[in-house]
Amino acid sequence: MPVITYRDALHDALREEMQRDDRVFLMGEEVAEYNGAYKVSKGLLAEFGEMRVVDTPITELGFAGLGVGAAMVGLRPIIEFMTWNFALLALDQVVNSAAKTLYMSGGQYNVPIVFRGPNGAALQLSAQHSQSWESWLAHIPGLKVVTPGTPYDAKGLLKSAIRDDNPVCFLEGEMLYNTKGEVPDEEYLVPIGKADLKREGDACSIITNGKMVLTAMQAADQLARDGIHVDVVDLRTVRPMDVEAIARSVQKTNRAVVLEEGWEIAGIGAQVVDYIQRDCFDWLDAPVVRVHQADVPMPYAKNLERAAKPDVPKTIAAVRKVMYLD
């Protein structure tokens, strides 16, 4: 099977879906002539023209709302945020317009739109450019929230998101764009709302999503050297969340670590823990442990940033804690 980058997987998904459906267009800052701030849209302007690959002014609220209006009357916009940090300016349109119009209109106007871009921290970008927004977005009924962690999932989920008739927030990982993985040549889709058991074990379940899938897999590799074999449950989609996949794994391993990139309070992990206590209370052998970003704005200095971020050593320590090994 061909091995390609996460970036190219996203690019191929965009290109294939734009070839398939001429209602699909891509709009955002630097997506056209510049070929995308992260080069995800490289070559698309040349292939599809300026009506379908549209450079915008720096005007997130404006072009997010433009996308919603276009979607209401039959187009299928893909709105690229250069990063989800900038999407905060557009959040009113995502929440109040995209997510609610179907309900407010009594089912008359659906909004088939994809809001996509990199989410979470890269390296030393400090407080305003290093944030994970999936828990904010997952809070909102009317949205789907997708966080692919591998090239295979990135391509299959983006194609599903573009074909979905609802607003989908698609959160990519800036640090994932250069990661590589197997992606088949033939067409495939990854369904929204289905988790994936990325690795099987019996000692503990690591439940995670997005960029942290890579961290969980690295932690699992190291733990295996000590004879500790863990399940890695990749949620892939945080809204809707695959509750059955969580329960299946935790009822097997009886222990859980929930790993997420964002902050602790009202985070994705808090919701996962709630599902676990509802569905797995009698199966648990230890309290669930969460791994997450420190409860501070992201600092700049290398050592402070490292201390703030969830990582492999913290994940391993959490697994050992729920196993009462330390």
Binding site: G65, V68, A70, Q93, S105, Y109
Partner: peptide
């Protein structure tokens, strides 16, 4: 709202529907 007469709503956040109109024009 009424799809039959292309009435795209009644919106409650002051100013927020103006970009939507621009999007309809774009479409």
């Amino acid at each position: 709202f009424d799809r039959n007469v292309n009435f795209l709503g009644g919106h409650g956040i002051v100013g927020a529907h103006v970009p939507l109109a621009t999007g309809v024009g774009f479409a």
